Simulated scan of single mutants.
Amino acid sequence: MSEERRLAVLRAIVQDYVATSEPVASKALVERHHLGVSAATVRNDMAVLEEEGLIHAPHTSAGRVPTDAGYRLFVDRLSALKPMSPAERTAISRFLEGAVDLDDVVDRTVRLLSSLTRSVAVMQYPSLTRSTVRHVELVPLGPSRLLVVLIVNTGRVEQRTVETGDVDLTTADGEAVVARLRTEINAEASGRPLTEAAARLTALPERFEVAQRDLVRAATGALDDALAEEREERVVLAGTSNLARLRTDFPQTIGPVLEALEEHVVLLRLLGTLGEDHDTVAVRIGHENQHQGLTGTSVVSTGYAAGSELVAGLGVLGPTRMDYPTTMAAVRAVARYVSQLLAP
């Protein structure tokens, strides 16, 4: 019973400190929360929590604040995430459904997440190892130009225009070559990871007559360029200005945090390793973040899917004094809506 009561005291300290940013004293806990015990008992529980390294006194006042370990225990013992309200869910859905392509989805997502959580939002473009080719389309643009269109399972579309050499695409023979090339490319690439698709297309020109090979090489070369661009690990973020609003949570300086956010590799690492469970929300608190500049921050992240497969991650970064239940619920809800948008 005493352990459960101390957990209730810790939970109350976390909630009050997140709400007020002021160290929490035993008297305030008794007045604000129905703990069912005396102030003396609460003081004893706070003493035990401090001995266990879950709270500490930032200065000589009677108040206490959570440590990284205290936040970790609080998050680990969350029985449920705070549900989003119907109005919030509707707003999320309407905002994201207005996106016209994947770039717009990513841009809207980070802006929405930063607004919902008042933190820095980070989103990774679909990962190289998890993206696949959905379809390749070839569209003649006159006698000597061909539009090559790559569509990836995440909804991203890349286009390239190539010169066809000696093949006249307006003739029956030219149309037949394009039709065969479209079939052969999709047979080799559709449904395959980007790197595998690129490798399988290298031998394709040898299957065609010598006079047609320049056209085939031009088309497969354009696809290789598009696939290479798709394979770049890209990360987008929004809401760094929110850190200025939270300056009191970084008593020394927010400089190291801003410098860390400028490093591409750091941003990718923030999102962690994706599992297979769409609903798993990961939380890294304070010194659990390996980058030195981020030891005063917490990162809440999850994965989003295209169909049944997780393809990349998204999340938010803010101070350790974070409303974890609300932030975790927002990250999970937005990821679900993004997954719905990207479903085939």
Rank of each mutant, 00 (worst) to 15 (best):
E97P: 03
M1A: 13
D279H: 11
G272K: 10
P58K: 03
L146V: 05
T220S: 06
L128E: 15
G63R: 05
H33M: 04
V65H: 01
E31R: 15
E229D: 14
Y125W: 13
L181K: 02
P325I: 09
E309H: 10
A25M: 12
L116Q: 08
T171H: 09
M123D: 01
R11V: 10
Y71E: 02
D224G: 11
R217T: 14
N44T: 13
L96E: 01
D168V: 07
E309W: 12
Y17T: 05
R43Q: 14
D279F: 09
I151K: 01
D214C: 05
L204F: 08
T220N: 02
V235P: 02
L294E: 09
R111S: 07
A12Y: 09
E259K: 14
Q292M: 13
Y125N: 05
R130L: 11
L78C: 06
E263N: 14
T67P: 04
L261Y: 09
A12R: 06
A25E: 15
P23Q: 08
R72D: 10
L204E: 06
R160E: 14
V178M: 09
L201R: 04
T297R: 00
H287S: 15
V105W: 00
E229T: 05
R200Y: 13
E196M: 10
R182F: 12
S127Y: 12
D107T: 15
A8S: 14
V331P: 06
A305E: 10
A305Y: 09
V266Y: 09
T154H: 05
V299H: 01
V18E: 11
A228H: 11
R118H: 15
T171C: 08
R321N: 07
R182P: 09
I254W: 10
M328T: 06
T320L: 05
K82H: 11
P126V: 02
L35S: 02
S26M: 07
A121S: 05
P319M: 09
T220G: 07
L7A: 10
R336I: 03
V236F: 08
A222H: 08
Y71W: 11
G191P: 08
L261C: 04
R213V: 04
V122L: 06
P58W: 12
S308I: 14
D277C: 06
V331R: 04
I254M: 13
T41L: 08
D323K: 05
N44L: 13
Q159V: 13
L96Y: 08
E262Q: 15
S131G: 04
T60E: 15
A47C: 04
E184L: 11
T320D: 00
G155C: 02
L10H: 02
L317N: 04
V65L: 01
A222P: 04
S2W: 13
